[in-house]
Amino acid sequence: MKAIRVAAYGSLDAMTVAELDDPVPGDDEVLIDVAAAGVNPIDWKIASGAMKAFIPLPLPFTPGVDAAGTVLAVGRNVSTLSPGDEVMGFIGIVGAYASRIVVDPARLARKPARLGFAQAAAVPAATLTAWQALHEHGELRKGQRVLIHAAAGGVGSAAVQLARLAGAHVIGTASAGNREYVQGLGATEVIDYRAKDFAEQVSNVDLVLDLVGGTTQARSWSVLKRGGILVSTVSKPDTGRGDEAQATGRHFATRADGPQLAALAALYASGDLRTHVDSVIPLPEASRALARSMAGHVRGKVVLDTTA
């Protein structure tokens, strides 16, 4: 099998392609022939060493949290999947940038037939993050006003659609070039963050989904109504600022959840949700894929073709 290996933290150019023995599934695992792997910001944050104090990993390791492919073999205790099943999943914090992987089936869902493997690989982490942010941590309800930062990215694209499906009034921040794209996902208002200060354009918001951090997060307190919620996937909100705004700040790490992913997969199968693949890049060029993600301004998700 082929796998991307990170032998040392630092430059993304230091990643190499290695030939490794195929993994063998344990009694409670499945072996997947990976067709595509999603590229997420956490991948380059880990590979660069920015997260090593929080997520220590033995070197070398294989990056990647999202995968889609076909089940090749199952452990003797696995009854939910069979060889030949097409699946997708948030497999863990690393491991997806490989042609074959072993995974806990509880992290997987069947791939919707209407999605190709590249589209399916773009779904798990982003959509689970969006759902958990809005519904579990943001307590989203019908009729609320929701502000979603980085609305054209992978998580943002899913969040706009999920908030629309929940009956919310959706406001997104994005570049001018992504205005029509974000509107097409279901946003009622789109603010060009380069041309306008969202804090001067928006007020009385029930929920802010912060996918940016920094000053964007700090300025988001001012748009929340009393009792509102600021949810961030990037950094822990300042509780002092929250007290001043009489609002709540929450930060979380996405939870792998096969049954939840299966419910979301049904929305992709029905067409209620759609995914956008920014670009598909061959596995040996993983450093280019991570650089593309790291530069920002990706519409939807970058995906690695692990068969290339």
Rank of each mutant, 00 (worst) to 15 (best):
G177W: 10
L209Y: 14
Q132V: 14
L147V: 08
L209G: 06
V212S: 04
K142H: 11
V208Q: 04
L108G: 03
G177M: 06
S82Y: 04
A109Q: 06
A176I: 10
I91N: 01
I101P: 03
A122L: 12
L207E: 00
G95N: 12
D85E: 05
P83K: 07
A133F: 10
L140S: 01
P124K: 11
A130P: 01
A130F: 11
H169R: 11
G138C: 10
A166K: 00
H135V: 09
L162S: 01
V155Q: 06
V202C: 01
A120V: 07
V208S: 02
V190G: 02
H137F: 12
V160W: 05
T216G: 01
G89L: 15
G84A: 03
S175Q: 00
G172K: 04
K196E: 10
P112V: 04
A218R: 13
D85M: 11
A133M: 09
G92Q: 05
L165F: 07
H169D: 03
A96K: 11
V94L: 07
V205R: 03
R100I: 15
A151Y: 06
L207D: 01
A106R: 13
E136I: 08
L108D: 03
L209M: 12
K196H: 14
A120M: 14
H137L: 13
R179D: 01
G95K: 15
G138L: 09
G143M: 08
P124I: 14
G89E: 00
S220V: 10
R107T: 13
K111S: 03
T216D: 05
F198N: 02
P112M: 03
I91E: 01
A152I: 12
G214F: 10
R179M: 00
I171G: 00
S157F: 13
V212P: 02
R110L: 06
T173G: 01
T129M: 09
Q144E: 14
T215H: 10
H149L: 07
H137E: 12
V102C: 11
T80K: 10
L209E: 13
A152F: 07
A121K: 15
G143N: 08
D85F: 15
V202T: 10
G153E: 05
H149P: 00
A218F: 14
S99Q: 14
E86Y: 07
L115H: 07
K142P: 03
A113V: 14
G214T: 08
Q201T: 15
E200Y: 07
A126W: 15
A130W: 12
R114G: 06
T129V: 12
T80P: 00
A125D: 03
V102R: 14
H169E: 07
L108Y: 11
T80I: 00
A159C: 02
K142D: 02
K142C: 07
T173Q: 02
